[in-house]
């Protein structure tokens, strides 16, 4: 990485944005650093360390939602969610199995959402939870981006030079709602062979709405609206959820890698979707 000549640590968000605007493509914001330390971005000459930008915070709304500063580490977020309304949700499931405890001290929530690797749990989860993303840049109006837009393409492909993700908002869970994240890997903390995040809401003992996202079967997560629609309007049951699992296995795009073949990943997805729907239903106060 000899092309990187300068390491800058501004003491404010405004300072960081000004530096990113000044250096444009030559600058790269530095969050947890776990990506940049391995990559060799050819045109990057300046690192802008965001540690002093005031983005390490978790603010709980009275209604149970949470605003998460993008520099918050995964371990700090997990601690902040203990005993809160989002405890025992897809978000805490994902945080508890995102690599190892030591790595969770490094990995930031914002970095995990923006970099989107196959092992990234938070894009899968935040998409299923319909999170919102605040993107700011120097002298431009902040953009409040919904999850569908944020993850439609890899964020690095549409975030402009000088744009920064500063906050992720997870709204308060509606009454009768539940969510779950499940991963299948070689062990608890390993990269997933497949992962699934589900959020749903029950009303009158039926599924009133559902969101379902599959991760790890390829680098970008996949939101399967047609599969989620299969459970909406139905009473939760093992049969309904198994049917959704089979449909997800057919719909999902999977690739081969050293962890498993595409066919094997699809097989795993079927089970994970079935089980995640059951777990989310249980958390919503229902039974399958």
């Amino acid at each position: 990485m000899s092309n990187i000549q300068a390491y800058l640590r501004p003491d404010s968000l405004e300072g960081a944005l000004a530096l990113l605007a000044e250096h444009q493509e030559r600058a790269r914001p530095l969050a947890g650093g776990t990506s940049l330390i391995f990559s060799h971005p050819p045109r990057v000459e300046v690192l802008v360390d965001l540690a002093g930008a005031g983005l390490d915070h978790v603010e709980h709304a009275e209604t149970g939602g949470v605003d998460i500063g993008s520099m918050t580490s995964c371990s700090h977020l997990a601690t902040a969610l203990r005993g809160r309304q989002l405890d025992k949700s897809a978000l805490t499931d994902a945080l508890a199995t995102l690599y190892t405890p030591v790595l969770r001290n490094h990995i930031t929530v914002g970095g995990n959402c923006v970099m989107v690797y196959g092992w990234s749990h938070l894009p899968v989860t935040m998409w299923a939870l319909d999170a919102r993303f605040m993107v700011v840049s120097h002298k431009a109006k902040p953009r409040d981006v919904d999850a569908d837009t944020f993850f439609e393409r890899h964020p690095l492909r549409w975030l402009g030079a000088g744009e920064l993700l500063t906050q992720i908002t997870v709204k308060s869970p509606a009454e009768g709602s539940g969510s779950a994240f499940l991963k299948f890997g070689r062990d608890k903390s390993d990269e997933g062979i497949a992962s699934v995040a589900v959020s749903l809401r029950l009303q009158d003992e039926k599924v009133a709405s559902a969101r379902l996202v599959v991760g790890s079967t390829r680098p970008m997560p996949q939101k399967l609206d047609d599969v989620a629609a299969l459970v909406v309007g139905k009473r939760p049951s093992k049969e309904v959820f198994a049917e959704a699992g089979e449909a997800a296995a057919k719909a999902v795009v999977a690739s081969d890698n050293y962890l498993g073949s595409a066919d094997y990943r699809r097989h795993i997805v079927a089970s994970l979707v079935r089980d995640a729907l059951a777990k989310a239903t249980q958390r919503a106060g229902g039974a399958a």
């Binding site: 390491y7 650093g33 330390i37 360390d49 405890p101 030591v102 490094h106």
Partner: peptide, 16 residues
């Protein structure tokens, strides 16, 4: 007081 992998940290990030 928090465990971190020294191989994953740019040295200047440890200032402070």
């Amino acid at each position: 007081g928090e465990p971190h992998m020294a191989c994953l940290i740019f040295a200047p990030a440890a200032v402070g």
